[in-house]
Amino acid sequence: MKFFTSNKYKDLTQLVRACQKHDPAAQTVFYDRYKSKLTGVCLRYAKTRAEADDIFQEAFIRIFNHINDLKEPEAADSWVKVTVIRTAINYYHRTTKEQELHSSLDYTELQLDSGDYEKMMDQLNVEELLSMINELPDKYRTVINLHLIDGYTHVEIGEMLTMSVATARSQFMRGRNMLLKKLEKKGIVHHENF
């Protein structure tokens, strides 16, 4: 438990129990423990830094207000992450206007094979990759994050986004292809620059 800077809370269970009693000191330690990681999650799901800040604050308010629902304190790591992801999904449910998502990406012809895309991603730094993900339309960005990074299945994504599995799958395909096109474009520019 490298995060713990206070001797008052010996482990995660004690920390969660203290937060459940609304102990302000415990809430501060809890916040410090998760703030960096969860900011990263918010930045992935958000379109802009400002929206990421909003989602982050809203998620933490929800975490502290509902921490009594957490019956197994040792599972706090995954619980807070799921809470942030669900907050991000709700945020875009509320704020996103119906976007034009029916582009002809189904017929996009990919130029490279899977190994090339992997190498290309490895060459990019996190900020560049994050910027590409952020540029995706809200629903595509959400599905890409859920399926490729956070490991949710299409069935789970369908339930979370209240859509059918087929819709979840097709949105993922469209989002993925859009991301790959951006990668190709970036890769070519990257290649030309070097």
Partner: peptide, 29 residues
């Protein structure tokens, strides 16, 4: 292709973190 993308993205973002807005905690509290 999906597996390749997943492994690449997970490598990049598994330990990704950033500092939140300094005033966030006050606003949350």
């Amino acid at each position: 292709l999906n597996e390749a993308l997943r492994s690449a993205l997970k490598r990049k973002f598994d330990d990704f973190g950033d500092q939140p807005n300094p005033s966030s905690y006050d606003l949350i509290r």
